[in-house]
Amino acid sequence: MTISQEHNQQVKQLQELIKGIDYAMLSTVDDDGSLHSRPMYFNSDIDADGTLWFFTSASSHKVFEIEHHQQVNVNFSSSTQQRFISISGIAELVKDRQKIQERWQPELETWFPQGLDEPNIALLKVNIKKVDYWDDKSNCHAKTISGL
């Protein structure tokens, strides 16, 4: 199997694991080294290359933290399906208006009432480095997807 085929299969596996989970916990590192976690709406926005996307305000504290420490962790869980996913990666802020428009969904108006006209609207791009997951199909044994 070629690397790109294996990569595509890993991305598809990750897409299946997080399918139907609308929220994730994003953990960042503050300047004092402490971890800071908050819920983030996830609209199933994962690229074919395995990149995760979240909407945010460019002036939020999490963006400040990411500008100083790009390493993040994103956790998804579905207790009803006994599925738990932990993703470590590198985050960056993206202010590209075209990308923001491409990824916009009406559900986001809950957090951005002015829609695409919201001041400071931006995207957090998370490049995945490693995925650990537990699910009922694997009898809750930890499994890892690396090299995404």
Results as ranks from 00 to 15, higher is better:
Q15H: 13
K99V: 07
P106A: 05
E67M: 06
L148K: 03
S86H: 06
Q105H: 14
D96C: 03
N139T: 13
D132C: 08
D30M: 10
K12N: 15
T51V: 15
S37V: 07
N75D: 12
V72I: 13
I121W: 00
T80A: 13
E109C: 11
W104P: 00
S138I: 15
Q71I: 08
Q15V: 11
Q10Y: 02
K95A: 10
V11I: 14
N75C: 13
P119T: 05
T51H: 08
Q114P: 02
V29F: 06
I145L: 11
C140A: 13
R38P: 07
D22C: 05
I3W: 05
T110F: 15
R97I: 07
K95Q: 12
S138G: 15
W104L: 04
Q9W: 07
N75W: 05
N8H: 11
N139I: 14
I128Q: 00
V94D: 01
F64G: 14
E102Y: 10
Y133G: 02
V29K: 04
K130G: 11
H141P: 01
V74L: 08
Q13N: 09
Q70W: 06
E92V: 06
K129D: 14
L14E: 00
H36S: 14
A91N: 02
A91P: 01
T2W: 00
E107W: 08
E107M: 13
H69T: 07
A48I: 14
Y41K: 06
Y23T: 12
V29M: 07
K99H: 12
G20L: 00
G89S: 10
P39S: 11
Q82P: 09
H141R: 15
D45R: 06
K12P: 03
L124G: 02
G115A: 11
